[in-house]
Design a protein around this nucleic acid. Structure first.
Lengths: 211, 211, 211, 211
DNA sequence: CATGAATGAGTATTCATTCAT
DNA sequence: AATGAATGAATACTCATTCAT
């Protein structure tokens, strides 16, 4: 029972530093974020910061890693609660796109990171997202398309997941929005469904989608 | 006799500065590029540089703008020469994706810019690309799909063009490549076709794609 | 039964810390040596280190002191075993110079310290060396030059000892070596002999110096 | 006549920066000297400093280089004015040692640099000094010792010059002085003369060296 | 118009030392 | 006595931009 204090304190501090990083980025932007700001916000000295993170980049990595985990968890929870398998692909896709769009749009931190995705170890998040969708998608296709397996599923999932993510980022970053949100979601949904559920995508095309 | 020189000189100098910008970025990377380097490479003083461009960003914008125009021109030329309208959508899409992939991969300047797309006024290029594809696509759909107009074409083109571009960028930036190039091109082509030519995309679905 | 432990432990720890200092300097260079490294290498906490040494400098002093003692002991042993008194001054000098040269050149720790001699309490070693040579030299001169005592022996020994040491250091630090080792040793030997055994150096000058 | 201003200004600024470096080192010691201090003392911005010197070290090198040149010039002037060749070696040596001793002792900057000689590009000065003495010495020996050329003169000069310099440095840095200045100068002079002018040093050795 | 010298705010990181536990 | 987490002052260097000439 007295074993943990040290570790606990450590972990607490690490978390406080990651929180501080998130806060400072939100407040001052990625460029305005300095290690000194972060330490100050976390209520520790810079020295301590460097006791727990080798450099600024490591701090960012940790933040992104955590965000990746969080987002992954959220999506998995959503998939489970939503009981994804019960719904037609189109509904699942539309909901996922909508959820993702709103998630980024409403989170200033995420917006700032997304705006700077190439200067930031985005893979920490993207890998998680890809995995999540793969994990959600695979049983879905196994269950609902057992008889008509999708050809080349892995590559298609890679493309569709990344297309969804990056096109959404692009869409959100564009000012003014070139098309309405409704149109965006519909077109994106169409694209996802078109790839995964198109006739010719599965060996014998089943029934045509009603939408 | 001395009428044009001024404007001419101006335009020449502007171009020389843009060329220098491109060259310096290629040689030293975006981060290693300073206004002094650019001025030196262009053979003028920094002062002159600032006579023609209000700041560094403007220089980048001009470069990207020009690249956008060039790429647009190239693509248009390709579309015309290739006589796009004669081919089925799938062929057109596959070729366009392949051309784009190789264009970026083989151009060091483009690679460097793509790697930093979010720090750079990428819109200057993207807008051009969107337009090009719209211009290419619209008559294509008008001609080949006259009787079965694609619903919501504008939004779909926006989504598909951006998806193609950004997913390709993501794919090129990922090391190691998560799927083979062949698989990537096929899946991306499927996605484009799936969105634009899927049954249900057009009012009465025509003949199924032979793929 | 528990009488000595404390003092013993203390002394042991002090030695372990000095050993650690030597080891860390050897491994990471003087600049790369931190008190934390030393404590870690010694297997104690920094806090403990500061219980035994008021500051980093004290640690260095202790190390140098110990090295001085060791070197002194070695040289004294050499002098005794070699039975210095039996040999002509030239042989003694040449051997001493050679031994010193090799001793520094072959000991990485010594090389590192010598390279930084002015940031380090070198006196701890130099004083020892001066004393050693004085102790060696005095009986030598007493015995071999009894009838012709060297004038001003103390000052001469001071000069010659320091000249030998510092010129050797300078010689070892210079890259590339400006003269061959053989030439260096010969010239240095000549210089020592020239000062201590020159005609005119001793009272009844065998041949009066014309100068 | 208007050609020079730029170069002139440059050179002036360079000199001002070197002067500032000297001044700051004198005032705050080598460790307390920062590039910002130097720029401030020189009355320019740090940026300007870095326009003329790539880094702090270059500034030190320039200072030492200049000092080397100055000292070289002074010594050469002294040699010429003193008409060195007219005097016996002993007098020349004694005077040179005395001059050197006082030169360092009376110049706080030199003292600080000498104290830190191994962290500083001392070669810039030492090389000059070695050369000066060689240039002074060679004709001297040619003229005065033509008939009895000194064996191995190059190595001997190297040893004697460095011994004189470094032993003097050591002597000046030692507090309290272990021997009187008078004794020091005498012993050092003896050593120089003993090496260069000892019987056996020149070809027809009056009395053959026993070794 | 052209020049290019001058500006100076801004920032990640280290490490000797302390002191609460 | 021992620990080791916390401290925080201190420093070289860059580069977009200006403006006197």
């Amino acid at each position: 029972m007295r074993r943990l204090p040290r570790q606990q304190r450590s972990r607490e501090l690490v978390n406080r530093l990651i929180d501080a990083t998130a806060a400072v980025i939100t407040e001052r932007g990625l460029d305005g974020t300095t290690t000194n700001h972060i330490a100050e916000k976390a209520g520790v000295s810079v020295g301590s910061l460097y006791q727990y993170f080798p450099d600024k980049e490591a701090l960012l990595e940790a933040l992104l890693e955590r965000m990746g985990r969080d987002i992954g968890t959220k999506f998995r929870a959503w998939a489970e609660q939503f009981d994804v398998n019960r719904y037609p692909l189109r509904d699942v896709a539309r909901t996922a796109v909508t959820v993702g769009l709103y998630m980024i749009r409403n989170d200033p931190l995420m917006r700032e990171l997304v705006r700077n995705w190439n200067r930031v170890p985005t893979d920490r998040v993207l890998d998680q997202l890809e995995q999540v969708f793969l994990v959600i998608a695979q049983p879905y296709f196994l269950k609902n398309y057992r008889d008509y397996p999708v050809k080349n599923l892995e590559a298609k999932l890679y493309v569709v997941v990344n297309a969804a993510i990056f096109t959404t980022i692009r869409y959100l970053l564009q000012e003014p929005a070139p098309i309405t949100e409704k149109d965006y979601i519909r077109a994106m949904t169409d694209m996802i469904v078109g790839l995964l559920d198109a006739p010719g995508a599965r060996t014998p095309a089943p029934v045509s989608d009603p939408m």
